[in-house]
Simulated scan of single mutants.
Amino acid sequence: MTALATPSALASRPARSPHLLRWLIRLHRPALLSWIAFVLVVGGLLLWVGGPLTDASAEAWKQYRACGADGCAYDAGAIGRYKDWYNYTTITVVAAPFLVAAWSGAALVSRELESGTAQLAWTQAVSPARWLAAKLAVPAVLIAVGSGLLAGLHHWAWSTGQGRIDTVKGWHDLGTYAANGTATAAMALAGLAGGVLWGLHKRNSLGALVGSLASTGFLWSVVAIATPHLWPTVTTVSSLKHSVPAGSGIIVDQGLVTSTGRHLSGHLCGSDTNEQCRIRYEKLDAVGYYNDYHPQSHYWPLQLTATAIILAVTAALTVAAFRLLKRHTGSAPARKAAAV
C-alpha cells in the first residue's frame, strides 16, 4: 500500500495545466454535454418563438383588429401558442442559474471530496488552490457564454413582438425583465460560486445541493426586491380625473398630492368623477396623483447595477471558497489522504 501524498508535500511540483484541463473535461463530460444541449435546445426554441411563432401571432392579431361588428375568423391558436411558448422559454431561462447551482453544489466539488477524487488530484502535481481555480474557471466561461447567449436570444424574441402582438409582455414583467438582461448570466455565475462554497462546507452532495439552491434563491429574491431602489425614480403628477396615476413601468410608490404639495402614499380610489372618490379626496385635501416609477429608459441602468452587485457577491463567494479550502487543507505536513 502506498500512501497518497498530501497537498503540502507536493507544493513544489510543477502543475501541468493542460493535463488538469483534460482531466476536468473528462470527469465532468456528462454535465458539459448536458449544458451544451440545454443551451442549443432553449436557444432553438427562442429562435422559433421570436421568428415563426411571433409572425403567426402578429398576423392573427392583425386579423382580429380588422374584425368588424359582425365578427370574423382569426387564428386564435397562433396567439395561444406564442403566449404559451414565450412563457415556457422565459421560465427556462430564469431557471438556468438554479440548474447551475444544483450541479455545482451536488457534483462539482462535494462529490469529489466525498469520493476522494479531489485528494487524488492533489497528488498529481496540482495544489488545492490550483485545483479549485480550474474547477471554477472552466465552468465559469461556459456558463457565462451559454447563459449570456440565452438572455440575448430571449431579449431578441421578446422585442420582435413589440408593436405587433397586443398581449406581448411589458419590459417590466417580472419574468421578462429577469430573462432579458445580463443579471441572469451574473446570477448563473453566482450559483456556480455558491455551489462550490456549499460543496466545500458540507462535503456531501445532498447538503450542498440544498444549500446552493437555497442561497441562489435567496440572492435572486433579494436582488428582485432591491432592484426598484437601485436607480433614481421618475415622478409624474397627474389629474384626479383619471382613474389611475399617469406613468407605466416599475412602480416604486404612488398616491395623492395635497394642495400643500405633500405626498400621501396610497389612498387611491379612482377618478374624482365618482362621487365617493371625490368626497374622499376632498377630505384628504388631494389635488392630484403622483407616481414614482422607472420608465423603460431605466431598464439598462437597473440591469447593469443589479449585475454589478451580483458579480460582487460572486467574487465574495469565490474568495470565501478559497479561504475555506485553505482552512481545510492547511499548509502543515501531511496526513494520509488516501491509500492505493
Rank of each mutant, 00 (worst) to 15 (best):
R22P: 02
R26A: 15
S205Y: 09
G77T: 09
K326H: 14
G146N: 00
P97I: 04
I79P: 01
A308Q: 08
A66D: 15
E282N: 11
A140W: 06
T235E: 13
V223F: 03
H263T: 11
A224M: 11
L142H: 05
S8F: 05
D55W: 01
L174T: 14
C269Q: 06
L317F: 12
K202S: 12
Q296N: 12
L149N: 01
V49I: 13
T90R: 04
A179H: 02
D70I: 05
I309Y: 09
P301M: 10
L136V: 06
S159G: 12
A9R: 15
T233R: 10
R29A: 13
L304Q: 10
A56C: 07
Q276L: 12
A157F: 00
P295K: 07
D272Q: 10
G217A: 08
Y299N: 06
V210H: 04
V49S: 00
T305W: 08
A306I: 04
T54L: 07
A73S: 14
Y82A: 05
I251A: 15
P333A: 14
G148P: 02
A102I: 03
Y299D: 05
L46T: 01
P232E: 01
H328Q: 15
W61K: 02
V94N: 06
D173P: 04
R280S: 14
S104Q: 08
A316T: 12
S215E: 07
A186S: 08
V145D: 02
A214V: 13
Q124M: 09
Y86Q: 13
W61S: 00
L230K: 05
P333F: 12
G161H: 00
R203E: 14
S221P: 01
M187F: 09
G163P: 01
G116V: 08
K241S: 15
V244C: 10
L174P: 09
K241T: 15
E275I: 10
L206E: 06
G181I: 04
G266P: 06
A224F: 10
P333T: 12
G191E: 05
G261K: 13
V223A: 06
L4D: 01
T329Q: 14
R13E: 10
G249L: 07
Y177V: 01
P52K: 08
P7M: 00
D272E: 12
V223L: 10
S104A: 15
L45K: 03
T216N: 06
F218A: 15
I309R: 07
L142P: 00
A121S: 12
A179G: 08
L24F: 08
